[in-house]
């Protein structure tokens, strides 16, 4: 279709595309773009959430961000969380998807149980399991001769402990998407390759993985974004402690917006975070298409 003027046929296509897109675009405009535009504007203001007073301050919030040591620390913490959570979660999800595809049906449901259990209750139960003085995990470790570990109460172990908890909680979702990708692979591909003498590792390498690429890209981007926006578990479990070890970006945004009453600064940090994630996402999409 390299004609300059679109044909009647193409115009018909554009019209359909527009009609099909319209409901979603209207919803996005009202509930996402408009508030986001406002947030971007707030980033250039000193905004008092409660009195509603606002004053233009230009790039002041961004200048503050550039020199705020806490912001740097929270970004670093978020990156650490991302590195601990996402690769392991994706690998485990794929392994589980392969396991349950042919495994007993109840196993799928079992792996999804954590995803449907309320975060509040999960944080209580895991808090007891991680208890430094009397927790279950320390009892188990004691059984194999490992001394008691501090887990959530130590600035070194708190973040890995939360990452493990979140892998446990979320891996079911990722598994589900891998499963959806796996069952969409036509069976005759495997049959043809097996007839040609391919072993199971080759089947995985040359059929399963390439055909899962769409799913992998989707999960990589969404899990990355979710990891960089992690808030609720940290808010419920450590509130950023001990000694700022789990203070992540969105927690810092939340604190600035609703505790320190610096909505403008919170918005500026959000814009920085979004730009950072946008670069990562576009890069991943490009990379996935280039291959």
């Amino acid at each position: 279709m390299d004609v300059r003027r679109p044909s009647a046929h193409a115009i018909e296509h554009y019209r359909s595309a527009l009609l099909l897109s319209l409901p979603a675009l209207v919803g996005l405009a009202i509930f996402w773009y408009w508030p986001t535009i406002q947030a971007v504007i707030l980033g250039f203001q000193d905004y008092n959430l409660m009195s509603g007073s606002q004053a233009w301050t230009g790039l002041e919030n961004y200048r503050t961000a550039a020199t705020d040591p806490l912001l740097g620390l929270t970004f670093l913490n978020t990156v650490i969380y991302f590195l601990m959570e996402v690769p392991l979660q994706m690998a485990l999800a794929l392994a589980l998807a392969l396991l349950v595809r042919r495994g007993p049906a109840w196993l799928r449901t079992v792996i999804l149980v954590p995803t449907v259990t309320s975060m509040v209750v999960v944080s209580v139960i895991w808090g007891l399991m991680y208890h430094p003085n009397s927790g279950l995990i320390n009892s188990l470790l004691g059984g194999v001769g490992v001394p008691p570990q501090p887990f959530l109460t130590s600035s070194q172990q708190a973040m890995p402990s939360i990452a493990l908890l979140m892998i446990w909680k979320n891996v079911g979702f990722s598994m589900l998407f891998f499963l959806a990708g796996l069952v969409s692979i036509p069976r005759n591909y495997y049959e043809a390759a097996a007839t040609d003498g391919a072993n199971s590792r080759q089947l995985f390498r040359y059929i399963t993985l390439p055909l899962l690429r769409g799913t992998v890209v989707f999960l990589l981007i969404t899990n990355t974004v979710t990891a960089f926006k992690v808030f609720t578990p940290i808010f419920l479990i450590t509130e950023g402690g001990p000694i700022n070890a789990t203070r992540v970006v969105v927690l810092y945004i939340f604190e600035n917006a609703f505790r320190f009453n610096k909505m403008g600064y919170a918005a500026a940090i959000s814009v920085l975070l979004a730009l950072f994630l946008l670069v990562i996402s576009v890069y991943s999409l490009r990379a996935s298409r280039a291959r």
């Binding site: 501090p150 109460t153 600035s155 950023g240 000694i243």
Partner: peptide, 19 residues
């Protein structure tokens, strides 16, 4: 007051946990 309570509360928690 709210900021004070937040930061000092965290401090006391960290100290109790051995900081």
């Amino acid at each position: 007051g709210a900021i004070y309570a937040e930061i000092v509360g965290d401090l006391m928690l960290d100290i109790a946990q051995g900081a």
